[in-house]
Amino acid sequence: MKMMIYVSAAVHDPVIARVILDTDIEINVDRANIDATSGEIVLEVPADSCARVATAFERHGASVSILEHPIIRDDDECVHCGACINVCPVQVFSFNDDWIIAIDESKCIQCGTCVTACPHAALMVMSE
């Protein structure tokens, strides 16, 4: 399951390391954007451990949201061209037998590359 962690001023603290030590759960960091004042981190967490990991992050002052629908497609705009397929680093998009684009949203790390690449403005990264 993908999980988005928002950290504020205290980005110097090794929050992820502490959560891993606290929970003893293997967490994979898919993406991290951190600047002077805050940070956004996308994690891959085993589905059955999500609640424990979320609680642990919240205890360290971070806010957490589970990415159930990390990427949304506007089906009225999508023409199933395929511009999203070869730019996605984690292969969220693929063609089905009828050349319709299938989305495996569980893989999405919300990097936003497909959003920029889509010629029809059909894709949107969801923040919550």
């Binding site: 023409v79 199933h80 061209c81 395929g82 511009a83 999203c84 397929i85 070869n86 009828d98 050349w99 319709i100 010629p119």
Partner: peptide, 13 residues
């Protein structure tokens, strides 16, 4: 290298 089209084969069909 991964390939993908910009034209829609679905709509062409």
């Amino acid at each position: 290298v991964r390939t993908s089209p910009l034209s829609s084969f679905h709509i062409a069909r």
